[in-house]
Amino acid sequence: MNRLILGRYFPGDSVIHRRDPRAKILCGAAFIFISFLAKNMEGLILLWMFAFGIMFFTKISFRTYFRGLRPLFWLILFTVCLQILFTSGGTLYWRFGPIKLSSFGIVQALFIFTRFVTIIFVTTAVTLTTKPMDLTDGLHALLRPLRLFHLPVDEWSMMLSIALRFIPNLLDETQRVMDAQSARGAVFGEGSLFQQMKALVPIFLPLFAGSLARGEELANVMDVRGYRSELPRSSFRRLKWTFGDTCCLLIMCLLIVALAAFNLNG
């Protein structure tokens, strides 16, 4: 549980840390689209360079990023294998029934692998350097135009910030319930897969029950303190867009142009 990197904030004061959350979210989202633009080797190399550049500027050790990759390892391996073994085209090196190894398949797998890993690296860089609260504020600010279509953007962001706020409490409580059940002789992480899954019931049910009770309480407290979702809300923390944030977006635009240029030449 403690090894989960995704969605955790690493305090620091790097160039990336200081960027406005809106800029970071926009760049992160843009990168996901851009990674599909890379269609040749030059593009591929550019993606890797960009990803490692970002990681370098966060001043967080590369080891942390690779640890963040670990939970997705099997998914990546599976997709890459699928690409290698079932894509035909180019030179055929080896085949066995429907399974074949071709030059085209290998190149295709390389692209898939690059997309996967660089996207994870860049998005991890965003979440590692942005406080969860800033992230919700940024998201809220970016989604605000959707209010024109009567979408409950404010409620969404309130829900998100409440959810994030209670993650530490939930972790605490998980530890407590696990301790209590171990004291009653429950053993976790042993036995067959089915047994391990069954062993989780005594943890999750109390957690669910506790969360429901707490949610109810929180709703009451918000009511009592006069929270009303339909009223306009002001915010204590103001996001400030700086020149550096504009630069970030410009760099992103440059990256798009470069990739597009590679495609035209290639």
């Binding site: 409580e173 407590r176 004291a183 009653r184 019931v201 005594p202 049910l205 109390p206 029950a209």
Partner: peptide, 24 residues
Amino acid sequence: KQSLKTIRKHIGMVFQFPESQLFA
């Protein structure tokens, strides 16, 4: 872990607000 389990058989522990561990 296994010998801890034999120890826990003999040592019962009631936590703070133990009602939050009920699940069945």
